[in-house]
Design a protein around this nucleic acid. Structure first.
Length: 257
DNA sequence: ATGGCTGAGATCCTCAGA
């Protein structure tokens, strides 16, 4: 039982790459972020041909999250509760077979202190409240996505840069992510690879970051205790990042019993 | 310290990403 998450940076621009990876990796459930399209323009057919059911929350140009599942999708939730004024498509949740899953796209935040950074922290506040509620459910729950936060120094390529209070690694956003972990969620990759360096999921398009492996680990799969009990193995598939017309993120996969 | 790269969508550039 494999669940994967991938920020594809436009599903339309990335369609051949995503289809190739999906046909190869064959995840039971695929969580997508930054699909960058509205629901009616999402290229559903090629995924349906591969046996997937699709639920998504989309908008023009920006953001957008989706859940693709071989099992039927039930109990679909779009957006975080009590976050009604927020129209950005950044959260979707559904039940697929015996797993409840969510695809989340946390705001980038641009730069510590700016309006978008405040919005990022506010989003984390709503996410934490919802995930705290969800701990009361008696079922496996997997929250995968682009959190736009590198939790620890080991999750960045350069400790000196990491300590400079930049976006992705500033104190407040790291605290916001840790608060969710402290509720009782497990960071799947770090749980099974506690000391592995260069375990990155995102490399900037600019300045040859991929070629020199200057990356960050900002895509995470968080597990409630039920899901953590079923965890077998997990990793980052860096292959698609090195191919033509790549997304700047690589897919993260998790295998469950 | 800055810039560098990519996608979308509306113009021939701007915004946003991270």
């Amino acid at each position: 039982m494999k669940i994967a998450t991938w920020n594809v940076n436009s599903i339309k621009a990335r369609l051949p790459q995503v289809l190739k990876w999906v046909a190869d990796a064959n995840p039971h459930i695929l969580l997508l972020q930054e699909i960058k399209c509205e629901a009616h323009t999402f290229p559903k057919e090629p995924f349906e041909d591969l046996g997937y059911n699709i639920a998504l929350s989309g908008q023009k140009t920006y953001n957008g999250v989706a859940i693709l599942s071989k099992e039927p999708l039930e109990d679909i939730l779009i957006g975080l509760p009590d976050n009604g004024e927020d129209m950005q498509a950044r959260y979707i949740e559904a039940v697929c077979g015996k797993f409840r899953v969510a695809s989340v796209y946390v705001p980038n935040g641009m730069e510590p202190g700016c309006d978008k950074y405040v919005y990022k922290l506010k989003f984390f506040h709503h996410l934490k409240a919802h995930l705290a509620q969800r701990l009361r459910l008696d079922e496996a729950f997997v929250v995968g996505g682009d959190y736009n936060v590198a939790p620890y120094e080991i999750d960045g390529h350069d400790p000196t840069v990491f300590r400079q209070e930049r976006i992705l690694c500033s104190q407040k956003e790291r605290e916001a992510l840790r608060e969710i972990l402290y509720l009782g969620y497990t960071d799947a990759l770090r749980a099974l690879h506690p000391t592995q360096q260069h375990l990155f999921t995102w490399w900037d398009y600019r300045a040859g970051s991929w070629q020199t492996n200057r990356g960050y680990r900002i895509d995470h799969v968080l597990l409630n205790p039920h899901a953590a009990d079923l965890l077998i193995s997990t990793g980052v598939d860096t292959t698609p990042r090195g191919e033509e017309k790549a997304s700047d993120h690589a897919p993260v996969w998790v295998l469950f019993s």
